[in-house]
Simulated assay, not measured.
Amino acid sequence: MTVELNHTIVPARDPQASAQFLAEILGLSVDPPVAHFTPVTLANQVSLDYDQLDDFEPHHYAFMLGDQEFDAALARIQHGGITHYGDPACQEIGQIYHSQHTKGRRGTYFRDPDGHLMELLTRGGTGS
């Protein structure tokens, strides 16, 4: 059997609202609750299981998207007035990055309602 990531728990002050926020940006839907978790399942069947917690450190979550899905997600971010950045330090406001190591890779960062740093990136090709 191969080893695969099945799910990860995402702490959130309001799990339903945070799950809905991410699902809308990614063009996904929020799954029915599982116990006290609010899951969002990705195309590779890994789920982000949002769980209510009041005190936590923000985490980083990165999502690989196809070029068309990236463009659509970026449009939803911009249309929603969500600040996005071209760098993980959140200094390059309103930018996307272009990888120097992976030809064609683009990406951007944004914060979710709980302060988690979300990254959207495309696969791109191999570097030259």
Rank of each mutant, 00 (worst) to 15 (best):
residue 95 Q to N: 11
residue 84 H to W: 08
residue 101 H to V: 13
residue 106 R to K: 13
residue 79 H to S: 06
residue 106 R to P: 02
residue 109 Y to F: 15
residue 101 H to C: 03
residue 84 H to P: 02
residue 81 G to E: 02
residue 95 Q to S: 12
residue 89 A to Q: 10
residue 92 E to S: 14
residue 103 K to E: 13
residue 87 D to G: 06
residue 87 D to H: 07
residue 85 Y to N: 03
residue 88 P to Y: 05
residue 105 R to N: 05
residue 98 H to K: 14
residue 88 P to E: 03
residue 107 G to W: 07
residue 82 I to R: 00
residue 89 A to I: 01
residue 100 Q to I: 09
residue 92 E to K: 15
residue 107 G to V: 09
residue 85 Y to L: 04
residue 93 I to N: 07
residue 107 G to M: 09
residue 95 Q to G: 03
residue 89 A to L: 06
residue 79 H to Y: 00
residue 100 Q to E: 12
residue 82 I to A: 00
residue 90 C to Y: 00
residue 101 H to M: 12
residue 79 H to L: 01
residue 103 K to M: 12
residue 95 Q to D: 11
residue 110 F to V: 10
residue 84 H to R: 03
residue 108 T to A: 15
residue 109 Y to K: 06
residue 82 I to P: 03
residue 106 R to D: 01
residue 95 Q to R: 15
residue 81 G to H: 04
residue 99 S to F: 05
residue 83 T to F: 00
residue 107 G to Y: 07
residue 92 E to F: 08
residue 97 Y to K: 05
residue 101 H to R: 13
residue 105 R to Y: 01
residue 79 H to K: 06
residue 86 G to M: 02
residue 91 Q to K: 11
residue 96 I to H: 08
residue 83 T to L: 00
residue 79 H to W: 00
residue 98 H to Q: 14
residue 85 Y to R: 04
residue 82 I to N: 00
residue 87 D to Y: 05
residue 97 Y to F: 15
residue 97 Y to G: 13
residue 85 Y to V: 04
residue 93 I to K: 12
residue 89 A to M: 06
residue 85 Y to F: 15
residue 109 Y to Q: 08
residue 110 F to L: 15
residue 104 G to C: 13
residue 111 R to F: 13
residue 103 K to F: 06
residue 109 Y to S: 03
residue 81 G to M: 05
residue 82 I to C: 00
residue 92 E to P: 01
residue 89 A to D: 09
residue 108 T to K: 08
residue 106 R to I: 09
residue 105 R to T: 04
residue 105 R to L: 08
residue 105 R to S: 09
residue 79 H to T: 06
residue 88 P to A: 04
residue 88 P to I: 01
residue 93 I to M: 11
residue 83 T to W: 00
